[in-house]
Design a binder for these strands. Structure first.
Length: 337
DNA sequence: CCAATTTGACCAAG
DNA sequence: CTTGGTCAAATTGG
């Protein structure tokens, strides 16, 4: 199984695909993201000065640890549609008889299949407007309409699951309540298990996610890491055009993140400055795409976010997901301390 | 032609 | 029984 056409990291949702030869862009993206990572969480490496902006990520990032209850909403298969059809399982059943039902044939499946969440697995929940942007490559293996949710839930697993047996999985659901009143649907992304795969060319660098996970050790000392007992959240007002450093952190058990944590907020407020602004990735004059126009885009599914990182010297290094048109939804500026 | 997505069936946990 | 998670054939885009 080779990925000659691999999509950009996490890019398998609908319209995200269709990369031409953006391998380089992709790589670049990873680098930038890695930088971002460092800027945000200089835990292991000394922080560097400089500013970065990651569009899309802007919106909101709620993190929860442990087996938290996800609210739902999804990434329907709105984008590109490839295939899908009925499966003649019934026929199989007939041929094989009942034996298969609970017997032999099931054996193989039974071993691999793991219904529901395992108790031991780690789960992290993220609420964002750009569910695709996590630096990993995922392969969709299912979609399900959840009862309580308006939108279906998409199931992804790491593309290296087969190669390296990476257990990492994730589900993406579009929130129904957050509404599109502002053209930016949010998605709840639940990450199950951690990546055991080595990031090769096809696999992007573990970005924000991993970092955030480590919030317990370095990034957010305040945050309790006990699974299910705490959660941290970053939220930003994506609508206010100039609401920079409008962040809300929550470390309580509330899923909404209503409790403004102690100092975490302070620290991160300085790190984050989110603005509802659009950046064009191309240094060269890009088509004047009105921000407003962007909001009108109809996102049926998760979107991949472009990355904009500022160089230390002040110049902007813009990077966009491969094959993406020169525009972004919004951006978040990250200012390193 | 290959590989990723779609999508309904399957099936175990609650 | 209900519901959510997974499988895998079919399908299609590149």
């Amino acid at each position: 199984m080779q990925r000659s056409r691999g999509c950009a990291p996490g890019g398998e949702h609908g319209w995200a695909a269709a990369d031409g030869g953006g391998m380089q862009l992709q790589r670049r993206e990873r680098e930038l993201v890695a930088q971002l990572h460092e800027l945000l969480y200089p835990s292991t490496s000394p922080s560097r000065s400089g500013a970065s902006s990651c569009s899309g990520l802007a919106a909101e990032l709620y993190w929860e640890h442990g087996s938290s209850q996800v609210k739902a909403t999804a990434s329907c298969g709105g984008g590109k549609r490839r295939g899908g059809r009925k499966r003649a399982r019934e026929d199989e059943r007939h041929e094989e008889g009942q034996g298969q039902r609970a017997g032999a044939a099931t054996a193989t499946k039974a071993t691999t299949r793991c219904r529901r969440k395992k108790l031991g697995t780690t789960t992290r929940t993220l609420v964002t407007t750009v569910p695709d942007f996590d630096g990993y490559q995922w392969r969709k293996y299912g979609q399900k309409q959840i009862e309580a949710a308006m939108h279906p839930r998409s199931y992804y697993r790491c593309t290296n699951s087969t190669n390296q047996g990476c257990p990492a999985k994730r589900t993406v659901q579009r929130n129904d309540d957050d509404g599109n009143d502002n053209g930016r649907p949010k998605y709840t992304v639940v990450y199950i298990s951690e990546h055991s795969c080595k990031s090769t060319e096809s696999a992007a660098v573990p970005v924000i996610l991993e970092t955030t996970v480590r919030a317990d050790t370095a990034a957010a000392p305040d945050v309790d890491v006990v699974p299910g007992s705490s959660s941290s959240a970053i939220s930003s007002e994506t609508q206010s055009p100039a609401s920079s450093s409008d962040l809300t952190w929550s470390s309580g058990g509330s899923e909404d993140g209503a409790n403004p944590p102690p100092r975490a907020r302070d620290d991160y407020s300085r790190l984050f400055a989110i603005e509802d602004e659009c950046w064009w990735w191309n240094p060269s004059p890009a088509p004047a795409v009105a921000p407003a126009l962007l909001q009108e885009m109809d996102f049926d599914g998760p979107i991949r976010s472009p990355v904009h990182v500022a160089a230390a010297d002040g110049s902007w290094i813009n990077d966009l997901f491969v094959n993406e048109p020169p525009f972004v939804l919004n951006s978040c500026h990250l200012f390193a301390l």
